Computed example of a mutant assay.
Amino acid sequence: MFLISFLLFVAAGINDVLVNNIIIVGPLLAHYGIFMMFLFQSISIARNFSLGFVEAETLARQVTQKNEELEGTKQELTILNERLEEKAKEKTFELQSKLDQINKDLKLAKSIVQSLTLIPELEPFLKISVLYKPLADVGGDIYFVKKIQDGYVRVFLCDATGHGLQAALYTMMIQSEFERLNLVATRPNDLLYYMNQHFYDKNAELRIYFPAVVVDFDFSQNLLKFAGAGTQNQIIHKQNGEIVVLENTGPIVGILEQFRFGITDVKFEAEDRLFLFTDGIFEELNEMDGTAALEELVDLIKETRDLPLENVTTYIKDGLFQKMQKTVWKDDVTCIVFEIGNFLFTSA
């Protein structure tokens, strides 16, 4: 459009130059050329403005449409967020309810385990001090002290698998089997034999394996009877300072069929002390070298000879923390100290 108007203007100008120089005869057309150029330019501007206005209206409609779509999407997202919040609240409430139930079950399990580990009155035969630190509310370590009859006491200590509810369930099963067999097993190794056979037969389904220690105190003969199933060597600290090592007498419970466990008999005297413990102490001292860990523990035990019994486990705990350079355990820890009473002197 601009090119046409410009060409008309130039043609009119050339025409006027030729007429003025009497080269051709005709009217002057320059003013018509200017008019036509302005006319065409006005039409072009008006047309471009009209197209721009139409395009602006189209864009405005598109923007409005997009805004409406965005607003709809926003409303959908708002509804979706509200639903998600409701779902999240429902799930949070559901999880909290389950967590509360689990905590309730753990508290019940803890109270049951505590009731099972109650120690009967054993004086003047025995005095007992216990260091029991489960990693969770309910740990895998469990012990029973039973007075079979006057002058005869049986101790059972084991380390069941896991912590929390799993450990509580295993503990209940072990305790049930212990109570069933305790009165029929006349010796510690017999009890381990019967328990081993029971769990071996059940382990196709349950897969419960655990180390255990059984000790009988026969005060009529001043005799200690010991049997161990997959445990660390246990320690007797004699009144004269001598250390007697009670070596393990068989594999862990539930792993070998019809295994006959060995038994160790040791004469005891007044104020002799028996130290029973689970592997948590060894893992704290030296997880890679059991021999070195036992030596360190024996050194600690020797230092307690002149301490009152009630201070022995505290001294051992503080000594372990000092050696480990920390103040928390990484596994269940149990250490039970038995001191032979002075009744022996009066009965002699």
Rank of each mutant, 00 (worst) to 15 (best):
K110Y: 01
D218A: 02
F49G: 01
R260T: 07
Q325F: 03
V155T: 08
T64Q: 15
L118F: 09
I281V: 13
F93N: 12
L224A: 00
L8W: 09
Q221K: 09
S97E: 10
D279M: 04
A88T: 03
I45C: 06
F226Y: 15
D16I: 02
K110R: 08
F178R: 03
M288C: 00
V333Y: 02
D201C: 05
A348H: 08
V312H: 14
K238H: 09
E123V: 04
H31T: 15
V328H: 10
A46G: 12
D137R: 05
L206M: 12
T314M: 12
A229M: 02
G254A: 06
S50H: 09
F9E: 06
Y209T: 10
I23C: 00
E69T: 06
R180S: 13
I24R: 02
V253H: 07
K107S: 08
I23R: 05
T117A: 04
E85I: 01
T92R: 03
L274C: 02
L95G: 00
V63W: 14
G230A: 03
L192C: 04
L59I: 12
S176C: 04
G52C: 04
E247T: 06
K225H: 11
Y194T: 04
E242Q: 15
V215R: 02
E242M: 10
N15W: 03
E71D: 15
D299E: 15
A167N: 07
L165C: 04
G13K: 00
L131G: 01
N222T: 07
K238I: 03
D100I: 03
I281F: 12
G280A: 12
L122C: 05
Q234G: 10
K104N: 09
F178A: 05
E85N: 06
S44Y: 14
L106Q: 05
D105H: 03
N67Q: 15
F6P: 00
K302S: 08
N182T: 09
F268C: 12
V253A: 08
H237A: 09
A12R: 01
N203T: 01
T186H: 15
F49R: 05
V214Y: 11
G241Y: 06
A56C: 09
R47H: 13
D150T: 05
E205W: 00
L183G: 11
N15H: 10
V337K: 01
I119E: 09
F9P: 04
V184R: 11
A168D: 08
K89E: 15
V213I: 11
L224Y: 06
A136N: 09
E94C: 00
N182I: 10
V213A: 07
I14E: 07
F275P: 01
S97P: 00
F219W: 08
L135C: 00
E283R: 08
K225Y: 11
